[in-house]
Design a binder for these strands. Structure first.
Length: 479
RNA sequence: CGGGGUGUGGCGAAGUUUGGUAUCGCGCUUGGUUCGGGUCCAAGAGGCCUCGGGUUCGAAUCCCGACACUCCGACCA
């Protein structure tokens, strides 16, 4: 069929070449455009709208929890960056440094922020003096720069937009609570807004954030069974505070170092949405974050009253709080149907002369392709319930895939075999030794994704060295 | 940063082996037609063939170099 042919040429089938499929979707759905600087991408209106919705949703949530937004400088003096040894080691190699036209060559070098811990520390060293100043719960929505060697749309930008939360507390308990709380906020975003099931866990020392004492993560399985880290939350202890000389006077008039956290999500989540939900026809947007939840398409618009009646439906949808738009262009119906499938709009509301006679409209859902003929008076309620249903269905499908592709194994040979045959996440016992972790990478080609919060609690043998231990660790191939 | 692939109107390609002044489809513009799954017809616009050197009477085509994109590794949200 001509229709199939065109779709194939538009988007590479997902199972044929996942990477190419991803690139096709990103470009064809007009989420991104390549810029003239390698690794720097243009977020087009539709792509940015997704990020805006994530921002709005999260920003409100952070504020509810008492966080305040701030804006830190973009440049970091080299001396600041050098203060925390592990942190520098992690980030210095990918820092970009600025030089100015007529500047004094002896002037201190300035890095473009790869992340802003050092800036917050510098600020707090000056402004935090008493227990009464704590906690500070800050957040900023900014872009950061990391000179990555290879880049991919959404998954690895040299400049990417994110949100970085930074908090400072009087006690380790309070800071740890913040770290755990924010991970759960992210998990809620993923599961209840993006329909992406996640595995909550803790990073190993090898994989944790440079300078952190502990890193929590959400690992999400993409359609190709690879893992995408979809949110992280770090507990710093008072390591940074010591290096940056941040102290406060406690209630007993003693000097103490405070405890810090940081946490972040980025536009990478959009890559996750695409790779978890997308199909051969393009993007499938989770309804709660979709920039457009329903598009109204007048069918045979030249016929008496169709356009007016369609506009009325649009107005009703908007009034009901559904993000909707109408397509009144003279493109054919088939073109429109295919176009909005590519863009992943959750619902398509069709209204034609035949519908008008019967007092109904046709609603098609993106996730399953099912069509419903709905009495016009039920439009709002049906759309609202369908959007919820779509969310639930998308989540369930992704959760099923996660479950079906998560395996338990005894030895590294088993892991290797599973990865060879099927791919996915594999959980084994691990003794905690970093050498074993590195060996697993060499022998089975997987890295540790996390030590899941959900532990079996059984005793077993480390999959690499065979030592008796109880810790479950999850392995996978990461993006 | 190592290994492969690619670079030709907005997009996708042919042409490159065997040098001779650029072709096709989609899209775009205009007019008509059609409209319940990528309508059809007609007329148009749009390209220093990624960039820089070289060879040649003549280069998209041959040679050297650079850059970009892309895939696979290593590194990272």
């Amino acid at each position: 069929m001509a229709q199939d042919k065109k779709q194939v040429t538009a988007i590479t089938p997902r199972d044929k070449d996942f990477a190419q499929w991803f690139t096709d979707v990103v470009v064809k759905a007009e989420l991104i455009d390549y810029s003239s600087v390698k690794g720097m991408f243009i977020l087009r209106p539709y792509g940015y709208a997704i990020w805006e919705n994530i921002m709005h949703q999260q920003d409100a949530r952070y504020k509810e929890l008492g966080h305040e937004n701030v804006a830190m400088p973009m440049l970091i003096p080299e001396s600041l960056l050098l203060k925390e040894a592990e942190h520098v080691a992690g980030f210095a190699p990918e820092c970009a440094w600025v030089t100015f036209g007529g500047s004094d060559p002896l002037e201190e070098r300035l890095a473009i922020r790869p992340t802003s811990e050092t800036l917050f520390c510098d600020h707090w060293a000056r402004t935090v003096t008493s227990w009464r100043d704590l906690p500070k719960l800050y957040n900023q929505w900014v872009s950061v720069l990391r000179w990555e060697k290879t880049s991919r749309p959404f998954l690895r930008h040299r400049e990417f937009y994110w949100q970085e939360g930074h908090t400072i507390h009087a006690t380790p308990e309070e800071a740890m609570h913040e770290t755990e709380q924010m991970l759960e906020v992210y998990a809620d975003l993923c599961e209840n807004w993006l329909a992406m099931p996640v595995v909550r866990g803790r990073k190993t020392d090898k994989e944790k954030f440079a300078g952190a004492e502990r890193t929590y993560t959400l690992e999400c399985m993409m359609h190709d069974k690879k893992a995408l880290q979809s949110g992280t939350s770090h507990y710093f202890g008072n390591g940074f505070a010591k290096q940056f000389d941040i102290t406060f006077t406690n209630k007993n008039n003693e000097q103490e170092h405070p405890y810090q956290t940081s946490w972040g999500i980025s536009t990478r989540l959009i890559g996750g949405i695409i790779m978890v939900h997308g199909d051969d026809n393009g993007l499938v947007m989770p309804p709660r974050i979709a920039p457009v939840q329903a598009v109204v398409i007048p069918v045979a618009a030249h016929k008496e009253g169709v356009t007016e009646a369609s506009r009325e439906l649009l107005a009703r949808l908007k009034k009901a709080g559904i993000r909707a738009k109408i397509d009144e262009t003279d493109n054919s119906f088939g073109w429109k149907a295919a176009q909005y499938e590519m863009l992943g709009y959750p619902l398509r509301v069709e209204l034609g002369p035949k519908d008008m006679e019967k007092g109904q409209c046709c609603i098609a859902r993106r996730d399953t392709g099912e069509k419903y003929f709905v009495a016009l008076e039920d439009l709002e309620s049906k759309c609202a319930s369908l959007l919820d249903e779509i969310h639930d269905n998308m989540y369930a499908a992704a959760a099923k895939r996660l479950e079906e592709n998560t395996f338990y194994a005894e030895t590294w040979q088993d892991v290797d075999e599973i990865m060879e045959e099927k791919g996915g996440f594999v959980i084994t016992k691990w003794c905690g030794d970093q050498d074993c972790e590195l060996d697993m990478k060499d022998m089975a080609g997987v890295s540790s994704r996390c030590i899941p919060f959900k532990q079996r609690g059984t005793e077993g043998k480390c999959a690499i060295c065979g030592k008796t231990c109880t810790t479950d660790i999850m392995w996978g191939v990461a993006y």
